[in-house]
Amino acid sequence: MLNIPDFFESFDRRGGFPALPEVISEIVHEIDAERISIVDLARLVQKDMSFAVQILAHANSPAYNMPNRVTNLSLALQIIGLRPLKALCLTIPLFTRFKHIMGLPELWYHSRVTALCTRIAAEKFRQTLQVDVEVAETLGLIHDIGKVFLFLEADEFMQCQMQLADDPQTLPDWKRERKALRFDHSFIGTRFGRKFNLPPAMLDALLYHHEPEKAQYQQELVYLCALGDQVATMIGAIHPDFRFVEPQILEIQKRLGLLPVHFQDLLQECVRRSLGISLIET
């Protein structure tokens, strides 16, 4: 059985979290330093053509509801915002590089739809919850990033996990991970987030996205991410290793004070806008 020391020993021996491509790493550094202009940032992004193309595609995604096609990179960066851009830097290269691994394209789709649903929820309930829309979207995008490393380091285990995905008698993915490994993808995701200097509220949310009641910092934000996660699953953007909506959704709805009419409105909008998100990205 794998355990935390074994997992991370073997993981670190193999070089730890894969390094970001050089240009992407530079972009992350500049975002963290908070002193680069959008025009300079666009110049930097342009150095990695395939990333630039994906950024333009993202700016044209249903998340932003732009009336016209965005073709200018500076405008695209302005629309996306720096925080979500950083999350895209941390996710796009990973999911692109390992897209041949069974389960990862579905996880990437799930992550993008969760980002959209969390964003929509933050837009709709901004007044009452006082949650930053960009932070919410960012969190949705990276909430399951720890799973990528399970796919890379514990591939046999993940293959078994995927075999059980359709069985309603089985425990949810994260509980099975804990049972077998004594840690879960939230734990690995938080380590990844720490490496890239994500703020404490976001690390907290990464760690507790399946147990929002335990969050220390911004509980509303964590509940919102948990909501986005479950709504994404509801509308068909499932986890490759667990296909069911968890009963926790009822508690989340209560905790966020959502009346049925609010939930219906959210769900409708999530279905509508998720139609434009592609399962496979090329």
Partner: peptide, 22 residues
Amino acid sequence: RLILLAPHDREGDFVKMVVETV
């Protein structure tokens, strides 16, 4: 996908609402 909600949603109201909304 909503099957795990059944024991917690005794009257089935939530599931019905979700299905009809979708």
